[in-house]
Simulated scan of single mutants.
Amino acid sequence: MTNTLEFISVPPKTGQPPKGLIVTLHGWGANAEDVASLSRFFNLPDYQFLFPNAPFPHPNSSVGRAWYDLRMENMYQGLVESRQQLTDWLQSLEKSTGVPLSRTILSGFSQGGAMTLDVGLKLPLAGLISLSGYLHQDVKSVKTQNVASLPPVMIMHGRQDTVVPLQAAVSARKFLESLGAAVEYYEFDMGHEIRPEMLELLRNFVIVNA
Rank of each mutant, 00 (worst) to 15 (best):
Q85H: 05
Q85V: 02
Q85L: 14
L86H: 07
T87L: 04
L90K: 13
L90H: 07
L90F: 04
Q91K: 10
Q91R: 13
S92L: 11
S92D: 07
L93C: 12
E94K: 15
K95P: 04
K95D: 08
K95Q: 14
K95C: 12
S96M: 00
G98P: 10
G98N: 01
S102E: 15
I105M: 13
I105Q: 07
L106N: 05
L106P: 12
L106C: 02
S107K: 00
G108W: 01
G108E: 05
G108C: 02
S110Y: 04
Q111G: 08
G112S: 08
G112T: 09
G113K: 11
M115D: 05
T116E: 00
L117R: 09
L117V: 01
D118S: 14
D118K: 14
V119A: 08
V119L: 10
G120R: 08
G120Q: 01
G120L: 02
G120E: 05
L123Q: 09
P124Y: 03
P124F: 13
P124Q: 07
L125T: 10
A126D: 00
G127P: 06
G127T: 04
G127Y: 02
L128V: 09
S130R: 05
G133L: 01
Y134S: 04
L135W: 02
H136M: 08
H136T: 05
Q137F: 11
D138Y: 03
S141F: 09
S141R: 13
V142D: 13
K143I: 12
K143N: 10
Q145W: 07
Q145I: 11
N146K: 15
N146Q: 15
N146E: 15
V147L: 13
V147D: 12
A148C: 09
A148Y: 14
A148G: 07
S149K: 12
S149C: 08
P152V: 05
